[in-house]
């Protein structure tokens, strides 16, 4: 059933980024993070589940290749901070938040795959601040598709993609058994 839906969706897929472009965008963002923060001291990456976590790990790997030394990585599940929780009939499945270091006084780079309404990032910032008081929160996204509903802006952007409201952006990643790519899907409400 799921496989068939996916197959049907593929027909309306419009490619936006291929594996090389995804890789280059991440490499550039890794450099930008280092440049803006003057190295990696006092900086940590926090990925938003699920896509953001994979991207955070990839960014960390690149950063380690460029500058010797490791950067702490956390994983954030924003479900409990969603603003539509009280409106849903069935509660979404929770995945664990795991930020195994004290974020107080660190510069935190939140990582997500797609920036859209900004509501996820609002929830992520609330979730993060419950864990401590970071010196700064920055935001890295692979794709910014516009249509913000909150005054939120990304610090690092892989690619700006103008979209219409009824289009959907899908980021497929190797970690989930797909070939790395970003596509637009027409009218396929999630």
């Amino acid at each position: 059933m799921i496989a068939r839906e996916e197959h049907a969706n593929r027909k309306h897929e419009k490619p936006i980024m291929d594996a090389h472009e995804v890789a280059r965008a991440l490499t550039r963002i890794a450099h930008e993070i280092l440049e803006r923060n003057k190295g990696i001291r006092g900086t940590a990456l926090v990925g938003i589940r699920t896509g953001g976590v994979h991207l955070a790990h990839r960014l960390a790997k690149r950063i380690q290749e460029i500058e010797q030394g490791s950067v702490p990585i956390g994983e954030l599940d924003i479900t409990l901070y969603r603003d539509d929780l009280a409106l849903r009939k069935d509660q979404p499945v929770l995945r664990k938040t795991s930020v195994p270091f004290d974020i107080t006084d660190l510069k935190i780079v939140l990582v997500d795959d797609v920036l859209f309404t900004g509501r996820t990032i609002r929830a992520a910032m609330d979730g993060l601040i419950d864990l401590g008081r970071p010196a700064e929160i920055q935001l890295a996204v692979l794709v910014d598709r516009g249509h913000r509903q909150l005054p939120i802006k990304a610090t690092y952007i892989g690619k700006n993609i103008p979209t219409s409201q009824d289009e959907n952006i899908h980021v497929f990643l190797e970690e989930e058994g797909e070939e790395d790519r970003v596509v637009i899907i027409n009218g396929g409400a999630p």
Binding site: Y81, L94, K96, T97, L131
Partner: peptide, 21 residues
């Protein structure tokens, strides 16, 4: 599995989430 997530919350310094506000 859901309780796993809340075990993490109860281990924080601020042991509160806004889920049932």
């Amino acid at each position: 599995e859901t309780a796993d997530s809340f075990k993490e919350v109860t281990g924080r310094e601020i042991k509160k989430v806004p889920a049932l506000r």
